[in-house]
Design a protein around this nucleic acid. Structure first.
Lengths: 190, 190, 190, 190
DNA sequence: GATGAATGAGCCTTCATTCAT
DNA sequence: GATGAATGAAGGCTCATTCAT
């Protein structure tokens, strides 16, 4: 018998992301995705249970990747400040290099599809960051606030700024990014 | 006649917002909205050119309302800090009182429908805020950064935190909101 | 507004019956029926909740019609024997005149769709027949057997014989029909 | 090798019959049957040319079996009446013991699939019965009527009564079966 | 202005079948 | 012989929109 074809699966994922970015979430039908991936609609149902599964799986994959990119190389010997700023730079890097994936994830997270995701699964990928923040709080370097609050000020502005749908005029220059990160630090530092 | 019209139109808007919040954007069909509003599908096309127009108009209306609520009573005699903090509190108030409208707007802004909106039209509603920020910059009270950057740190964290889809665990207590606003001020103040 | 079009509805029913007889039950898709009825597939869903509803409704309509044809003019003054034989002739008449309807009903009754039918609804249409049989039993003209048993011998052979799928070689001559009915009488008479 | 084959083939047949009885004819897809039989869809195409062939073969096998069960031990020394009544009892026995097979066959015979069957092939299996009837006619024990007519009265009522789809309320007690057979005899005897 | 009927296009999914291993 | 992957076609149904009243 034939064996599942990784090339095919990747083509499906890429087609999904690309199409969603081009024509949006609601208009991206299974058959359009299939056509884009040069695959039969039925083939998609070999790799995914249904359309929801396809989208959710793609989102989780992206999000997990992002987590790894962000926190893959936390250096415990560095000061908290430096590590967080590095991660911010890394985040910006990742987004710039994988714009397609990022846009898809943003659109997904703000859509009702997001409700289908086991949130804990994603939070797990960000565990190291939580631990670092806790350490910063304990060391009285960072304000003693819930994680969500800290993250909302630390990284979310970047997410927001870098999204052309939300900030069409923003220029993602190095200077602006540095500025954004330094403002973020001002927000959370004690 | 006129009165009747407005009742029907409001019913349509309310149905749209409610349905989108319940079953999501893509699943909210015109006929479902019509049924929810106790109106014929055809009637919707009397008030709106098409489905896009219905959704876009609803979004713009909400966004304009929000702008008015936020900046309706800027008191030029108050310090910049106080005015911005007041507006933040007002923002939070508005969201709490009109959760439905807010959720709809967020989902809309992050969807491809957003691309259909003339952004300038909405920015106009926030002109007073821009002027205030510029004044703060000129007075060397606020960091000299592009408006988007300032706003991304000033109000966007609130938007983010208050959205249960993005932050399911966040408790919107007064203490947390105050904390968030004070962090926001730390971020933008010079 | 437009009003529901009886012509259209009849076209749908006729198309359903004709198609099912031609290409069979399982192959008769909604869109094929629609095409045959010169109607959009969507239109069918205005008149019927779904495919099952279309088929079940059609069956019930046919069965009810048959009941009326069979027992529409029971003459209480005639002997039981004559009434039953007349009804048999009527039954044969009806089948001959409405072969299409009959074949459809037979195929339906023996398919799993049949399970969707509220049997009581159909039995109601045959109440007069049950009463007549009971009268015959009470008068010691007919064997004292459950109704199903009597009917299985009285009319079911006709149903069976007249169905070319089950009896391709049977010639439905008057002589054969008369013979069949007289055999039926021999079976049930005391 | 050979043994293995037969096990697999039987699993396929059993799965087919069971599934058709459970979810009906039209919904029984090849892949569902395969899953039920713990076999790959492709495997079915090793044993059968296509889906039609699978169903038709299964039907013919059942029908042939039934013929053998019915007429396997005709005893020429017995009176015609006794032989026919015995066969009736045998028929009822067979149906009771192999309900699944019987239901499948009934559904099949009344569906368009039935048109694919070479009828002569099946009639052959019932040759002894025809000969016995002819003998009864010649001996002036049985009415001189076409075989179909005789059979329609002799055994068809049993088929009808015993099918819960057609007679949901009928109780197949020994008394009722005996009664049915005696009525059948009354119908055909001279 | 307001309506429910009507529609062709398209939705998601499964089908019967074949392919490559 | 046996398998699961792969597929174009078709399945039932709903969509955004227009028509006739």
């Amino acid at each position: 018998m034939r064996v599942k074809d990784e090339i095919k699966q990747n083509a499906i994922i890429e087609a999904t992301v690309a199409l969603v970015n081009e024509i949006g979430f609601a208009s991206s039908s299974v058959s359009k995705i299939a056509k884009r991936a040069n695959v039969s609609p039925a083939t998609i149902y070999i790799y995914y249970k249904n359309k929801d599964d396809l989208l959710v799986s793609t989102y989780i994959k992206i999000k997990t990747c992002l987590g790894e990119a962000l926190m893959g190389d936390f250096d415990p010997s560095l000061p908290v400040h430096d590590t967080l700023m590095n991660a911010g730079a890394e985040l910006f890097n990742y987004i710039t290099k994988h714009r397609e994936l990022f846009y898809f994830a943003e659109q997904f997270a703000n859509s009702p599809y997001s409700d289908l995701v086991e949130k804990a699964q994603i939070e797990a990928a960000f565990q190291p960051l939580f631990e670092l923040l806790q350490f910063g709080i304990d060391q009285k370097i960072i304000k003693d606030a819930p994680f969500e609050l800290l993250l909302a000020h630390l990284y979310h502005p970047i997410f927001n700024l870098v999204n052309p749908r939300l900030n069409p005029h923003f220029k993602a220059t190095q200077k602006n990014i540095d500025l954004a990160m330094s403002m973020a630090w001002d927000a959370i530092k004690l």
